[in-house]
Design a protein around this nucleic acid. Structure first.
Length: 551
DNA sequence: GAGTTTGAAACT
DNA sequence: CAGTTTCAAACTC
């Protein structure tokens, strides 16, 4: 199926073909490119994309400002036929670069203040621009105005180029497919708004960096503005969520206090949820070691500290669960729709659930990320205000909460704490809205709802982990108790284990009750841990909708 | 701008 | 599949 991807002012369509097919559209600023696409007509493409319905609207730029209206298809069709390609249905179509967006990791267009600008041309000397060394070739575009020598990546050498493409595809059928997992947000790279737009997608093959720490553009992940993932085989990677170096890089480069706040919030939240939820650089380094209970780290998704809130919490009772503590999404609005997370790729169902959750969140966060010329987000303002210590009063007035009130007169809080508090206040905002207080701005409301949703996810995950822990301990203790009881050949009617199990049982009941009060929509994507009383009185943890999870 | 470093791609 | 070489971009001076 043809998929549409809206990236700023461009829409890229990906056809399930191994050939790159990049089509120009409407000049440099508005481009529609088809990536892939052997033998399909514009009509097919149009219907597949659903120009007439709402495919684009679903993923589009938010606030109803869709850059590609129906009538804009006309120039597209014209250009398709006016393409320099030798045949109407080229087997290896390419287009001239200046008008082509790029489907690979290295963008041909760099976003500058929301405006795509041509990236510099290639300088190939020995490859004749017929190998993947050449960015143009790799991007599926003809060289045009490049500084290359003996270039064969042009219309004149179509036959040669065709052979080269075939050879390349023979080596690697996916050679012309995007290296980075699709994300409509990853291109966004303006200096003003780098706030964790990085947390998107992942490198399909992963990088193999050794010396750059994955914090230089040598690293394809870094270059693509994404975090390294479990696919990467890099050494001494610093391109992961929570990395101080990476944080410093972002912070130093852009001086974006919000970025820092959000990242600090991520860190703080991770730390708050669990000691192993937040990965220090040192812990990241453990991927090359076997520190996690002697289990091969390669088998676990620890490459990135970020896990989807519902991903793999309980799959591995050991290391993986330790690393799967939900993180930054709750505190990081920009990472919401995109959180580059390393999920434990262990179960397709789980993945599907994740994607559903992801897409639902991404949808709601699209306007924030995609709308270039938006007025300052009230949420950001509130964060900034918060950092200046001017917001707490406002929040107190709005929410009437004792929480913020209680913070007065105390020592200054760390950025992480402040960011966390910001989230708390977001929750309070939601509560306020639920109490029929005057609504805030729509965008703000969406954001706060998102935060609430995230917090729910986080809390759910946390609760689930605690439940597992309790149940595990209870079950084990009960088991040992009964064993010892048998050994003593005594027949106590009320073994210790029972008295122990009562406590968590009631606790579980309480928690379960709490969980059930969540709207179905909020946790439908996530497995719900419950307890089941076995015949021997032991409590058996169960996970709804996730019976694949290891017990 | 020249030289060096780096890591992906290509090759063996 | 692992090791080596080639290549061009990124980086440094």
């Amino acid at each position: 199926m043809l998929t549409a991807e809206v990236t700023g002012s461009c829409v890229k369509y990906t056809w399930p073909s191994r050939y790159p097919f990049v089509l120009p559209f409407n000049g440099a600023r508005n481009s529609i490119g088809f990536t892939g696409g052997v033998g399909f007509t514009s009509e097919e493409a149009r219907s597949a994309v659903g120009f007439h319905d709402s495919v684009l609207r679903g993923s589009g730029g938010g606030a109803g400002t869709l850059p590609y209206e129906h009538q804009q298809l006309q120039p597209l069709q014209k250009q398709m036929h006016a393409s320099p390609l030798p045949t109407p249905r080229p087997s290896i179509p390419m287009s001239i670069k200046p008008e082509s967006p790029k489907g690979r990791s290295r963008p041909l267009f760099e976003m500058k203040e929301g405006t795509p600008t041509r990236k510099k041309n290639c300088n190939c000397k020995h490859s004749r621009c017929l190998k993947l060394y050449c960015e143009c070739f790799a991007s599926g575009v003809f060289c045009d105005g490049c500084n290359c020598a003996n270039c064969c990546n042009n219309v004149e050498n179509e036959a040669t180029r065709h052979e080269a493409v075939e050879a390349t595809l023979e080596r690697n059928p996916n050679a012309f497919r995007p290296k980075i997992g699709n994300s409509p947000h990853s291109i966004r790279d303006s200096k003003e708004d780098v706030v964790e737009t990085t947390l998107v997608g992942k490198h399909n093959k992963g990088c193999h960096c050794k010396k750059s720490g994955c914090l230089k553009k040598y690293c394809e992940c870094f270059q693509a503005n994404i975090l390294c993932s479990e696919n990467c085989k890099c050494i001494d990677c610093k391109n992961f969520e929570g990395s101080e170096e990476r944080k410093a890089l972002h912070h130093g480069d852009h001086g974006n206090a919000l970025t820092y706040m959000q990242q600090a919030a991520n860190a703080a939240l991770n730390g708050a949820i669990g000691p192993s939820g937040y990965f220090s650089p040192a812990s990241k380094k453990r991927k090359n070691q076997d520190l996690f209970f002697g289990t091969s780290v390669k088998d676990q998704s620890i490459h990135s500290p970020v896990q989807y809130p519902n991903a793999g919490h309980v799959k591995n009772s050991g290391p993986s669960s330790l690393t799967s503590v939900p993180t930054g999404r709750a505190a990081n609005p920009a990472s919401l729709g995109s959180a580059k997370a390393t999920y434990s790729v262990q179960d397709e169902k789980h993945l599907e659930m994740e994607e559903q959750a992801e897409s639902s969140l991404a949808l709601s966060s699209n306007d924030k990320i995609e709308t270039p010329a938006r007025p300052p987000d009230p949420q950001k303002i509130s964060v900034d205000d918060q950092s200046n210590g001017t917001h707490s009063d406002k929040m107190t007035e709005e929410s009437g909460s004792d929480f913020v009130e209680g913070q007065r007169g105390r020592r200054p809080m760390s950025p992480g704490t402040l960011a966390l508090m910001c989230d708390e206040q977001d929750m309070m905002c939601v509560s306020s809205q639920n109490n029929n207080l005057p609504p805030i701005l729509p965008n703000n409301q969406r954001m706060t709802e998102m935060y609430a949703e995230q917090e729910k996810c986080v809390l759910m995950a946390f609760r689930e982990s605690l439940l597992k822990l309790i149940n595990c301990g209870t079950a084990k203790e009960a088991k040992f108790s009964s064993m010892s009881s048998k050994a003593e050949a005594s027949s106590h009617e009320d073994p210790v284990c029972n008295s122990i199990s009562r406590i968590p049982a009631s606790a579980n009941a309480q928690v379960s009750q709490t969980v059930n009060t969540f709207p179905a929509s909020s946790n439908s994507h996530f497995p719900v841990a419950r307890t089941q009383t076995l015949e021997n009185g032991d409590l058996k943890p169960t996970v709804e909708s996730a019976d694949h999870v290891d017990k």
